[in-house]
Structures are given as C-alpha cells and as structure tokens.
Nucleic acid binder design. Sequence first.
DNA 1: TTATAAAAAGACATCAATATCTTTTTATAG
DNA 2: CTATAAAAAGATATTGATGTCTTTTTATAA
Lengths: 144, 144
Amino acid sequence: MLGKTTEYAIRALVYIFIQNQEGKRPGFKEISKKIDSPEQFTAKVLQNLARAELISSIKGRGGGFFFDQPATPLTIYDVIRVMEGEKFFSKCGFGLKRCDGESPCPLHDDYAVVRGGFFRLVKKETIQSLANKINEQKAVMTRL
Amino acid sequence: MLGKTTEYAIRALVYIFIQNQEGKRPGFKEISKKIDSPEQFTAKVLQNLARAELISSIKGRGGGFFFDQPATPLTIYDVIRVMEGEKFFSKCGFGLKRCDGESPCPLHDDYAVVRGGFFRLVKKETIQSLANKINEQKAVMTRL
DNA sequence: TTATAAAAAGACATCAATATCTTTTTATAG
DNA sequence: CTATAAAAAGATATTGATGTCTTTTTATAA
C-alpha cells in the first residue's frame, strides 16, 4: 500500500512527537535506531519532512527534530500527500489513465468504496492519535 | 495499490476472456494494443499467467491465449496472489515486520477494516464479472 | 518439407525506489 | 576561537519493477 519511505516517515514522526512530549529533540541516528530504519536514508526522509514543514530541525550541538506546533493535529493523510503526492488518492484501480463515473473501469464503483474507507482512515488518524495509542500501551512502535 | 504488472495482467485476462467468447484466441501483440500496455512486456506477463495456469497458450500459426475453463470463475484475488504473492494481503500498514492483535501497530484495527473491504472486493469480482460489465457497456476497457 | 506465424526464452536496458558514503554548513560548548 | 556535534547536501550504489531486443521452439498451412 504505502511505500517504505512513507512508512519510515510516519514512524519517525510518531517517535519524534513522543520524544518531544518529554522535552527531547531526537536526531536521525537515534530515530532510525528506534523505528528500525536505515540511518542515512532516514536522514533524507527527515530532511524532506522538514522541507515540507511538517517538522522543524535545528543543526549543531543539541540539535535535532521537533514539532513547532505539537498541538495542531497532523493527519496521516497530510504525511502521505507530502511523501507520495496527491494522485495517490485518485489513481484508478484497474490502471486506466482516466477513470470516472462518466466512463468507469469495471472496478470503479467497488474500488471507490474501499478507497473511501482508506481516505476516512488517514483523515481520522493523526501523528498525535497514533502516539497516544503507543503512550497508552494499546499499540507498539516496533517489533523484531 | 496494485503494481502496473498486475494491472496489465487483469486487463489482459479480461480482454482474452471477451475475445474467447467470440471464439477467438488473441496473441500478445493484439492484446497489448487493446489494453494499452507495452508489447514485449505484456508477452512476459502472459507467459507468467500461463505458467501459473490461469490461462493456456498455443504456439505457432493460429495460436494465442485462451481460458481452458471459461465457466470457472477466476477471482481478482487469484490474479493478485499469482502476480504479487500471498503476503500482499497481510502486510502491516505501518511497516512492522510482524503485527497482529497481540501487539498491534497503532494503525492495526482501522487498517484491518479497510483491508477487509479490499479483500471482499477482490474475492467478489472475477475476470468474468469484469468482462460482463464491459460487454454490457457499464464499464470500459481502456481510455486515452 | 518448407515457409510462416506465433509463443517461449534469454539477455539486456532503463528507471524509480531504496540505501550508503562523503563533504559541507551551522550551532554550541568549552 | 577552536573543537565538537548535529543536520544538510551532494554524489554514488543497489535493488526491484518495468521495458526492449534477439534467438529459439513449436505448430500450422501451403
């Protein structure tokens, strides 16, 4: 479904958010260790997230990654949009270049339902809500 | 969602099925033209589908691709399983190597619902049902 | 039995996603 | 001001998905 790069992004954001709650600003080495992702590649992903202004970063001693507005919910939808692009949510399931109610592919109607469910999911869940589940030990961050 | 290769496979199967209904056995050149896919690559995809016994093929003059048992429904699920592998349906949405009710990722429950919807879709729809929609002009095979 | 048509097979080629390595820039501590 | 810590940037590498080209095998028709 999502590319690895997007998965790293979501996991990294959740980890950063949780660390921020404790007043810390983790760096990419720590993050990659904790979310089980390749170190340098994670640095690139974090760079992209910072450029897209989903997070902020500070260079130099004591630097790291953090949320400027931790109270503002950041939906998984927003993360996917930044990482995968907008068309991710509209691509035809049958592979047609164009596909709509006017001249639909044979999967169009059923696929619209499933996609709608996915859309609601990523609009409902946020980095904050995922972090809460982990804080409340209703979910885990990693697993061997 | 699905890889291009799988999309070509599904479109090709639907086209072959429709042609078979008219007593014809299309070859890969005709198929690739009609489903808008690269010619040689489509030949490889068809080879794989034949090796997996989802279709049969005949070499030589008058040869081409066809369904041995056109009356036996072939689900989209079966096609995806052959093309993408079984794990396609169980991969964790958050990217964890293992993820289940015991120690779920923070997307687990919501994701299970969406995936369930997708699973029902691909188990319900078949090459035959897609072909019917096209025959009845309720859907189209390609679009520029 | 030879020419032809078609799929199968094998070898490459290209491109995007994923990943690593090195150098540069920036900030802070001492 | 110098050493150090950290992110940013640039260059390169690897891998898997996608795509092409050439040769081989198989079947049929004439």
